[in-house]
């Protein structure tokens, strides 16, 4: 890395944080990790690769809904952006297959 210029800062700001169309974010703060977010994150990375599902998987901080950790936010083109809560490794796989690949929301795990 090298020193950043204000021009670069401006153009980055213009592009925004989420530059890819399809992404998944996992809340990886202490509250999330305590509830198993690290396992969910690793499962998502692993399984997406194994199943050839193209999606950007990132970690992020705690969005505040600590009662529903681990939280996984999913944005897939053509579907509303939603947050899944109380996600387990199994649910993570369902999210990849059903939501990301087949473009259908997963029942019973959405938290608003």
């Amino acid at each position: 890395m090298k020193k950043i210029s204000v021009e670069t800062m401006d153009s980055m700001k213009k592009e925004g944080v989420d530059t890819s169309k399809n992404w998944i974010k996992v809340g990886m703060s202490t509250c999330g990790i305590a509830a198993g977010a690290d396992v969910v994150y690793a499962t998502l990375l692993d399984e997406a690769k194994k199943r050839n599902i193209e999606v950007v998987i990132k970690k992020c901080g705690c969005a505040g809904k600590c009662f529903a950790e681990p939280l996984v936010e999913v944005n897939v083109e053509g579907l509303p952006r939603v947050t899944y809560g109380k996600v387990t490794a199994e649910v993570a796989v369902t999210i990849l297959e059903r939501h990301v690949r087949n473009k259908k929301l997963v029942k019973d795990y959405i938290f608003f």
Binding site: E15, G16, V17, T19, K59, G61, L71
Partner: peptide, 17 residues
């Protein structure tokens, strides 16, 4: 930004303004 940016990425933070 909590829940929006990757806390380990300064680029994410700059992208968020």
């Amino acid at each position: 930004n909590c829940g929006l940016v990757d806390p380990d990425s300064i680029d994410d933070y700059i992208r968020a303004g």
